[in-house]
């Protein structure tokens, strides 16, 4: 059997990705995480001296703290299997990627293990995140200079 025929057979036989189910679960999971985040944000605005804009930093830190606990107790991977993109896209997913790598590599020591591998998965998120922020900022700067939009 040649490769093309086999690829077709494999496609026909293997279970299909349940796209609709995955999207609904991702929506529910991602939505729930963001809802919790919203409450955390409101908490900081109500009980502390934060504005909507400045509350985002402690909110992100708190959400990552939650992700750390869930990862450490082995629950985040279960949420991940259920929620897919819904639990991967929010900041908690980023936290999970960093924390899981840190836990995994603890056996090789703190410097070469934890330190050297912590950003193994999340490193590319940081790199391309910073790079795309740079590109977007550049575009906006040009548009402001041209007078099309204002800051």
């Amino acid at each position: 059997m040649d490769e093309k025929k086999y690829a077709k057979l494999e496609k026909d036989t293997s279970p299909k990705t349940p796209l609709m189910r995955n999207m609904i679960f991702a929506f529910l999971t991602g939505g729930t995480i963001c809802l919790v985040g919203q409450f955390v944000s409101l908490f900081y605005m109500t009980y502390f001296d934060f504005t909507e804009r400045t509350a985002s930093n402690p909110t992100v830190a708190t959400m990552i703290f939650f992700a750390m606990l869930l990862t450490g107790f082995g629950l985040y991977k279960k949420i991940g299997q259920f929620g897919g993109a819904g639990s991967a896209v929010p900041i908690t997913g980023f936290g999970n990627a960093v924390i899981s790598a840190a836990i995994e590599h603890k056996s090789e020591g703190y410097v070469l293990g934890v330190g050297g591998n912590m950003f193994k998965l999340a490193g590319s998120v940081i790199l391309f995140g910073v790079f795309s922020a740079f590109v977007v900022a550049l575009i906006k700067t040009i548009l402001v200079k041209l007078g099309v939009v204002s800051w």
Binding site: S14, P15, T17, N22, T71, G72, G74, Y76, K77, K78, I79, G80, Q81, G83, G84, A85, S87, A88, G93, N96, A97, I99, S100, A101, I103, E104, H105, L121
Partner: peptide, 17 residues
């Protein structure tokens, strides 16, 4: 798992295959 795929506690979704 850690050698071939991701850290064990990483929350990636695996397909049915």
């Amino acid at each position: 798992e850690r050698q071939f795929r991701y850290p064990n506690e990483y929350g990636g979704q695996k397909p049915d295959t």
